[in-house]
Amino acid sequence: MNKLYSGNRNAKSQRNILGMLIASTIFLGGCATNSATEQQQVANKDDPYEHFNRKMYTFNDRVDNYVAKPISDSYKWVTPQFVQTGVYNFFSNLKDINVVVNDVLQAKFAQSAHDTGRLALNTTMGLAGFVDVATQVGLEKNEEDFDQTLAVWGVPKGSFLVIPLVGPTTVRGIPGAIFDTAANPSSYVGIPVQLISLLNTRANAEGSLKFINEASLDPYVFTREAFLQWRHNLATDGKFEVSLDFDDELNNDVEPASKSTDISTENITLTAPEVNTEAK
């Protein structure tokens, strides 16, 4: 009986393994086909996982539409503007701790003094950061984070990734985000504060998300390009680069069907000084 049972179980497990093998073959085959066609079709060297990323992007977009946006809209509807600004300032002030740490790690000592002054002023005179007094007296906010520090240290950005429930990043952005989360006090004060922080982030991204919706023909590609350019611009502190590979195309008006060089957008990215596109 026992033997029979165990034989049955063996058969069952064998079927299961076979099933899994078939499934994985189909799955892997599917992946291979997709990635092959995609590489042929899209060939964006910053985004080798486009197939996966697009799926995650669609997933995140749905979660945002059905969960995050309604909550964020309600928050914006019930909360007076001055409270929203206060909440934004509060979390922005806590982030200034990260800014100072990353200033030092990037050896930007003058800027770190500036940002320490900002932090001190806003934490005291600005009532724990709820009022951004520093900007009013001319101490503008700088944007620094650990991803930028890694960039300054020469770490390449790696592939573009869309992480479920988190959003766009790059391989380098992952340790960047972990370090920044660890260095930010709001990570240690409990879930309610973190929820408000998330809500504040989403509410402040409303303008950007609306713009993407209105302006993009392909929201995924639009987000990817805008994100990569924005991060590049921050990492290089807006150092303006005039690298015009599309000039070849411009100047080749007389000789059509020009050499089919790699026309990845990285080469035609132009960046501008000291700016960011973070939604406010």
Partner: peptide, 9 residues
């Protein structure tokens, strides 16, 4: 605009 190239995008 703010470091994002319209043409590249």
């Amino acid at each position: 605009a703010n470091g994002v190239s319209d043409l590249a995008l």
